[in-house]
Design a protein around this nucleic acid. Structure first.
Length: 263
DNA sequence: ATGGCCGCCCTAGGCGGA
């Protein structure tokens, strides 16, 4: 099974890029974030034409939105809500004996202080609620599961272009890294990409739109992640970051992350 | 070494992204 996660930053604007990515990578399952489209307006017919007969969406107007596209049948589809908001950030579905979790964690605004920045407070509460849920009986960490998405936290020093300069920048602050680590521990999750790319090696999945030349500046962050439960660790056969799409015309600022499993 | 940028929406300035 090949799974791809991608924050596409508008699935309608970049549908042709989705088609190109599918052609290049031939994924069996695609987890999308920031689809920015209400469910009735999701391009279902076009997505089916790419070979995904099974599609789950949770979307709203303008903001957020997640989707799972699959060549395998999807069942037990759920769209959990967190922090008392119905903001379309989470989808869970069974696909080929694997429970797939597509997740979009709040970005958290600019100021890394929950007392003055409500968005940062929301991000921290969101990570806490998720960790509590994944640690509870609601989630069976002994079964095969994949969590994929834009988690909006770059946990390792080598997941950002400058650890020192980003310590007080939202996405790499110690409190966020701590909460993401607790979330991973709560579900027994294994980082499927770092399973193949050692922590000594820099790895990014997002580059700001503001840089004149994203590749030359290379001030990236690894915000997009694929995790698996221990039951799938032995099935992992590869992982890659698909940088090519960042050079396409009118790109998303995030690039696809690919994980292969012998399933 | 940040911010010079994006996409969306009651089409235009404000919001959210990170």
């Amino acid at each position: 099974m090949r799974l791809v996660t991608w924050n596409i930053n508008s699935v309608r604007l970049r549908f042709e890029q989705l088609a190109h990515m599918v052609e290049a990578l031939s994924p069996d399952v695609v987890c999308l974030q920031e689809t920015k489209v209400p469910c009735p307006k999701f391009p279902l017919i076009e997505a089916r034409a790419l070979g995904f007969d099974h599609i789950a969406t949770s979307g709203m107007k303008s903001y957020n939105g997640v989707a799972i596209l699959s060549r395998l049948p999807l069942s037990d589809i759920r769209a959990p809500h967190w922090c008392g908001r119905e903001d379309c950030r989470h989808l869970i579905a069974q696909a080929g004996g694997v429970e797939v979790h597509c997740l979009y964690v709040p970005a958290g605004g600019d100021i890394p202080d929950p007392a003055v920045n409500e968005k940062f407070a929301h991000k921290l509460a969101f990570l806490d609620e998720l960790a509590a849920w994944y640690a509870s009986e609601a989630f069976d960490a002994s079964r095969p599961a994949i969590l994929a998405g834009d988690l909006n936290v770059a946990p390792l020093d080598t997941d950002v272009w400058s650890h020192k300069q980003l310590l007080k920048v939202v996405s790499h602050t110690p409190v966020e890294v701590d909460k993401l680590t607790r979330l991973a521990q709560a579900g027994g999750w294994v980082d499927a990409v770092r399973h193949f790319v050692p922590p000594s090696e820099r790895l990014y999945t997002w580059w700001s739109y503001r840089a004149l030349d994203w590749r030359k500046a290379d001030r990236g962050r690894r915000l997009d992640h694929v995790w698996v439960t221990p039951a799938l660790k032995g099935a992992l056969t590869g992982a890659q970051v698909f940088q090519a799409s960042r050079d396409w015309p009118q790109p998303s600022d995030h690039v696809p992350v690919v994980v292969d499993l012998a399933l």
